[in-house]
Design a protein around this nucleic acid. Structure first.
Length: 432
RNA sequence: UCCGGGUUGGGGUAGUGGUAUCCUUUGGCCUUGUGGUGGCCAAGACGUGGGUUCAAUUCCCGCACCCGGACCCA
C-alpha cells in the first residue's frame, strides 16, 4: 500500500457529491453576477512569488527545478497568476474585468483544522473599477453565495475594515511602521493584551499612542467622523468616506445586514489597500476566519501593468465546509440514482433500450454489469440509493411487461414494456 | 520548522512479552424473480525501520501519517 501524501486528501463519491453541490452553488451565484470562469496553470515560475514576498516564501511552497532548469512552484494562490493574465492582455480586455475560478492550490504547511497542503478555493475578482460599487458587489456575491448555501445572517458575519483608515490613523502618530502595526491589529483577537501592545510599540508607537490608537479602532460604525476629526487628514477623510460609500452600496445590494464595521479586522497580507473584510462564524464555533477579501489597487501595477484597481475575495472550501457543517447546512453525503434497470435472465436488449431511453431523459441510470443475481442486484440498487428499479424479467417480458418498483415503499406494478419510459423524461412510480 | 495527543482488518473496537476479541463492512451462496430485516461460507489488521529479548503488536528510539495547536496565512 502507498501512503497518501501528508496534507493531501482523497474525496470519495459521497463527500465529493456534497462538495460539488457547494462549489456549484457559489459559482452559480458568481456567474449570475457576470463573473466569467477562467482556467489557470498549476505551475508558475517560483520567482513570481519570491520577487513579491522574498525568498523565504519558497520555504512555504512546493518549489523545484524542472528538466529545463526552470525554478517552478505549485501555485499557492491565484492572485499573482491572475495579475499576470490581466497585465498580458491589459489593452484588449474590456473593463471591468470580472473573473472567477475554483481550483486547488498548494502550500507546504503543517495541516490543522481547515488547513491542508492541497486546498480548494473559489476566487472572485474585479479589475478596473475603483468605484465603491465594485467593493460592494464583491461583498454581495460573497453574502449571496453563503445565503444560497442555506446560511443566514445568524450564521455568519462579515467584519469590514479599511486599510487606509488604519494606515491614515497610524500616519498621524508620526514615524510608525504601518505594516507591522497592521499585523499587530490583525493578531489583536488572537494574542493577549500585553503582547498586542508590545507589537504596537515595536512598530513605533509610544505606550500612550498605542492605547489611543486601539481606542480609535473600536469607534462605532455611526461615529466614523470622529476618526476624521482626530486625524484631520485628507487621507483618513477619504478613506472613511469610501468605507461609508461601500456600506451604502451594500445596503442597496441587499447585503448590508451581513456586514459589521470592525476596524480591528486587518487581514495579514500587506497588499491590501482599501476595504478589507473577513467572514466569521457568528457563533464563534469555527474559531478562525472562514475567508476574507478586499481591495488591492496597487498589485497589478506591481506586476508591471498599468495602474489597475482591483477587489476580490476567495473562500477556501475547507473552512467553508466547517461553517456549513456547524450551521447544519452541509449537503448530505450520499450518491443518488434515479433508476436501476434490473435484469432477470437474458433480457439485456430490452433492459439496455430502457436504460438508454431513461438516460436520454437526463437521468442517472445504472444497470447490471456484473452478471449478478436478482437479490444481489436489488441489494446493489439499494446501496446506490436508487429511487426506482425497473425489473426487466423474462417472465414479465413474455406478457409484454416490465415491473416498476418504488424502492422507498417497496410497492410494485406492472407496466407495458412498450410504454416505458414513454413520453415522460423522468417517469415516476405514480405515473403508471 | 516547533509543541501536545494518537496509529490494531475498509470503518469502529477488545486485548496481550508467546501473532489477536467483538461489531460492522465487502464478496459469494441459500434464492438469476425481490433489497433495506434471516442463515451459511469466505476475505480482511497490530503504520514503518531499528534496538532490547529465546520471543515484540505489546518495552525503548527514529521516521511516516492522522488529529489539534504555534509560526505563517502570500
Amino acid at each position: 500500500m502507498y501512503d497518501r501524501i501528508k496534507g493531501f486528501r482523497d474525496f470519495y463519491p459521497e463527500e465529493m457529491q456534497a462538495r460539488r453541490q457547494v462549489t456549484d452553488t457559489i459559482e452559480t451565484v458568481a456567474r449570475q453576477y457576470g463573473f466569467r470562469e477562467i482556467g489557470t496553470p498549476a505551475l508558475e515560475r517560483a520567482e513570481m512569488y519570491a520577487d513579491k514576498s522574498g525568498d523565504e516564501i519558497l520555504e512555504e511552497l512546493y518549489a523545484f527545478e524542472d528538466k529545463g532548469g526552470r525554478k517552478l512552484a505549485l501555485t499557492p494562490e491565484l492572485t499573482p497568476t491572475v495579475a499576470r493574465m490581466v497585465v498580458a492582455k491589459q489593452q484588449e480586455l474590456s473593463k471591468p474585468i470580472k473573473w472567477m475560478s475554483t481550483r486547488p492550490f498548494w502550500r507546504y504547511e503543517e495541516p490543522q483544522q481547515g488547513r491542508f497542503r492541497e486546498f480548494y478555493q473559489t476566487n472572485v475578482d474585479i479589475f478596473g473599477s475603483a468605484d465603491p460599487a465594485a467593493d460592494a458587489e464583491i461583498l454581495a456575491v460573497a453574502a449571496d453565495g453563503l445565503t444560497e448555501l442555506g446560511l443566514s445572517s445568524e450564521d455568519f458575519d462579515f467584519k469590514v475594515s479599511h486599510r487606509d483608515i488604519l494606515g491614515g490613523l497610524l500616519e498621524t502618530f508620526g514615524d510608525v511602521n504601518t505594516t507591522a502595526a497592521i499585523r499587530a491589529v490583525d493578531k489583536r483577537a488572537k494574542i493577549d493584551e500585553g503582547q498586542y501592545f508590545e507589537l504596537l510599540t515595536d512598530a513605533g508607537l509610544s505606550d500612550s499612542q498605542a492605547r489611543e490608537f486601539d481606542e480609535l479602532l473600536t469607534t462605532p460604525a455611526d461615529s466614523l467622523d470622529e476618526l476624521v476629526d482626530f486625524a484631520g487628514t485628507d487621507r483618513v477623510e477619504q478613506a472613511v468616506e469610501n468605507l461609508e460609500n461601500v456600506l451604502a452600496a451594500t445596503e442597496d445590494f441587499g447585503v448590508r445586514k451581513h456586514c459589521t464595521v470592525s476596524l480591528t479586522t486587518a487581514r495579514g497580507l500587506d497588499y491590501y489597500t482599501g476595504v478589507v473584510f473577513e467572514c466569521f462564524d457568528s457563533t464563534g464555533e469555527v474559531s478562525r476566519a472562514v475567508f476574507g477579501g478586499g481591495r488591492y489597487d496597487t498589485l497589478i501595477e506591481g506586476f508591471g501593468g498599468q495602474p489597475t484597481p482591483a477587489v476580490g475575495f476567495a473562500p477556501g472550501h475547507a473552512t467553508l465546509s466547517l461553517l456549513c457543517q456547524r450551521a447544519g447546512v452541509w449537503p448530505e453525503e450520499s450518491v443518488t440514482t434515479d433508476y436501476y434497470v434490473l435484469q432477470v435472465g437474458d433480457t439485456r436488449p430490452t433492459a439496455a433500450r430502457i436504460a438508454r431511453d431513461l438516460r436520454a431523459g437526463g437521468n442517472i441510470v445504472e444497470a447490471d454489469i456484473a452478471g449478478r443475481s436478482f437479490g444481489a442486484q436489488l441489494d446493489y440498487a439499494d446501496s446506490i440509493n436508487a429511487d426506482l428499479v425497473v425489473i426487466v424479467g423474462e417472465r414479465d417480458l413474455e406478457n409484454g411487461e416490465v415491473t416498476l418498483k418504488d424502492m422507498t415503499s417497496g410497492d410494485q406494478k406492472s407496466v407495458p414494456v412498450d410504454a416505458f419510459p414513454g413520453e415522460s423524461k423522468s417517469p415516476t412510480f405514480a405515473e403508471f
